[in-house]
Design a protein around this nucleic acid. Structure first.
Length: 604
DNA sequence: CCCTTTAAGCTTTTT
DNA sequence: GCTTAAAGGG
């Protein structure tokens, strides 16, 4: 085992050199608030800080580090980075959860400590939307949440919100399976730690350090839990975020998140001043927006890999979407023919991406390039089991590379409860079973003639893995009908891809997004980066809310712009969606882009 | 059944 | 703000 390193002697791993502010934030003790603009390398900072805390003993054994993110994606990325930077052993004391994942673990662990009148059944179901709708008779999730939120735990009295809670806790089926919304589960956890000091102490004594990712998006409820658990003189809380990228206010993010953290946690504040992502000319435009985004203007350093004049911002003004589509399609096609991968390009919209890009998608298709709204398939493709099923199909037809084979093998071993260490003999047997599964699946795939056949292949794969075993490894698949939903949707999507792409291999790769230009909303693009970004529809009708939420819409524009590494293009059409378009309401963006030091205006 | 008025959606994640 | 769906009146 490696011995403890001294704090002074510790150096970032993999030859990473952190900027000054990041280095200071890394070694600082106590609570911290880090402002991390786009491309500032906050994942790197958090990963290195985790390594530092564990390797120097600043987070002493047996304490762990807890990182909380909003998306699964960010949670896994952060964990993987820690593993990559400082190895499995160190990562073993690093927990990376989403807010809801963290809450669920607490709920599952301490469920019995809840008072009986608000205790869900052990086998509670989470976010079973249809069931919750059926029980409440309310179609909209947000209305349900708003009503349920009014109830005071532990549900004394019989107000209508308490009755609704009780109805959902009583749940469905003969055994009375409770039906919880995510918000209910979260509130139960908050109640638990507020009222049960044993539970709260157990959690506090597990984690010495807490990281809060994308802190600007924290909701009131999430903040209450963090404060309850980790505002004390032993836990060090590091909040990392950027108020310039705060576009979730409308969905419940705390308007004064940073002020609250400052006054409650009295943190040391740091601001990262590098932008490792974008070229100088794009960064120049980003910093010109600081003032209107409520931040003190200050220089932002770019990566030395860029030339000072690198980066290009354009504003494309056209009469109608067909001109626009032709121009954009040509630009995108040129890039792809020059060797830029389709995934390095992104087409962004403020809203309704499908409506804004029908013409462009057709035009690109004419050039042999596929573009797709990621919003539709994202849910499907962020499901681990879906990816596993697709990987199994790929491997079976002989198209899975070694990394896919390895990750599938690992996942299947986990499902089947086979551990390599446990018994080499047992593992050998498992490998034989695995190759049989691939063999059988291959034969079924070969005879796939319609969507229905495809569904049967998937059912066979699921049966071979064992549905119960899958359920215990993938909690979302404990719910009835979830398997049917998977085979249903996945076979529908895959079959249409296979028809278009002529064949299963091409179909799967295409469904996975290989060679496809992504189209998405600005909101979905948060946290991502692309070589070239096209924002289609810089028009009043897309920014209709600007009058009422100018700050948030400025942030949206900033988020779109800051996704781009090399090129950002904004488009305005005088005529779209069957009516005339204006930009009076969002003229500040046009003034910015009309400055010829900043952008090139193209009129066609 | 048709016309008018009213209300909601638009931008989201999480096991 | 503007579109669409639901609800209400004749």
């Amino acid at each position: 085992m490696k011995h403890k390193m001294s704090r002074e002697g510790w150096k970032p791993s993999d030859g990473i050199v952190l900027e000054d502010a990041a280095q200071k934030a890394l070694v600082a003790e106590g609570n911290e608030l880090v402002t991390a603009g786009p491309g500032s390398g906050k994942t790197e900072l958090l990963a290195q800080k985790a390594c530092y805390l564990i390797q120097t003993g600043a987070c002493p054994k047996p304490y762990r580090i807890l990182a909380i993110s909003f998306k699964k994606d960010s949670a896994t990325t952060l964990f993987d980075r820690v593993k990559q930077r400082c190895g499995k052993e160190t990562a073993g004391r690093f927990s990376s959860y989403t807010f809801d994942g963290f809450a669920k673990i607490i709920l599952d662990h301490f469920l019995d400590a809840l008072p009986t009148q608000c205790r869900p059944s052990r086998d509670y179901e989470l976010n079973n939307v249809e069931m919750i709708q059926a029980l409440t008779g309310i179609p909209k999730q947000r209305t349900t949440d708003a009503l349920l939120n009014r109830a005071a735990l532990p549900l004394v009295g019989s107000s209508c919100e308490n009755t609704l809670w009780k109805k959902l806790l009583e749940g469905t089926g003969p055994k009375g399976t409770s039906q919880l919304t995510f918000q209910m589960a979260f509130r139960l956890v908050l109640y638990l730690v507020e009222t049960n000091s044993d539970v709260a102490t157990l959690i506090r004594d597990t984690f010495a350090c807490v990281f809060l990712d994308e802190y600007q998006d924290t909701t009131e409820l999430q903040y209450a839990l963090i404060k309850e658990l980790f505002l004390n003189d032993r836990t060090c809380v590091t909040a990392v975020g950027d108020s310039k990228q705060r576009i979730m206010l409308w969905a419940g993010a705390m308007p004064k998140a940073f002020e609250r953290f400052k006054s409650d946690f009295s943190p040391k504040s740091f601001e990262l001043l590098m932008n490792h992502r974008s070229a100088p000319r794009l960064v120049d435009l980003q910093t010109r927006m600081y003032k209107s985004l409520g931040e003190q203007p200050h220089p932002v350093a770019t990566s030395s890999a860029w030339e000072p004049d690198d980066g290009k911002v354009s504003l494309l003004i056209s009469e109608d979407p067909s001109d626009e589509s032709k121009y954009l399609a040509q630009d995108i096609t040129d890039k792809i023919r020059d060797g830029l991968p389709a995934r390095e390009i992104c087409i962004l919209c403020k809203q309704k991406p499908k409506d804004y890009t029908v013409g462009l998608v057709k035009e690109l298709a004419g050039n042999g390039i596929r573009a797709r709204c990621e919003n539709e398939v994202q849910d499907l493709l962020s499901d681990d089991l879906v990816i596993l099923v697709l990987d199994i199909l790929l491997i079976s037809i002989g198209s899975g590379d070694s990394s896919i084979r390895a990750s599938a093998e690992q996942a299947i071993a986990l499902i089947m409860g086979v551990l390599e260490k446990q018994s080499a003999e047992r593992y050998q047997m498992f490998l034989v079973e695995l190759s049989e599964l691939y063999q059988e699946t291959y034969i079924l795939c070969k005879n796939t003639k319609c969507k229905n056949d495809l569904e049967k292949v998937m059912q066979h794969v699921l049966d071979s893995l064992g549905r119960d075993a899958i359920s215990s490894n993938y909690p979302a698949y404990r719910q009835p009908l979830s398997f049917k939903k998977l085979t249903d949707t996945l076979s529908r999507y895959l079959w249409s891809e296979m028809e278009e792409a002529h064949g299963m291999e091409a179909g799967i790769k295409s469904l996975l997004g290989d060679g496809v230009v992504p189209i998405m909303t600005i909101h979905k693009s948060k946290g991502l980066e692309f070589d070239s970004v096209y924002l289609v529809g810089l028009e009043d009708s897309a920014f209709w809310n600007f009058k009422y939420q100018p700050d948030e819409d400025r942030c949206a524009f900033f988020v779109a712009l800051s996704r781009a590494q090399r090129q950002a293009t904004f488009t305005f059409c005088r005529h779209r969606m069957g009516r005339d378009q204006s930009h009076d309401g969002i003229n500040e963006f046009f003034e910015l882009l009309s400055n010829d030091k900043v952008a090139t205006v193209i009129r066609i």
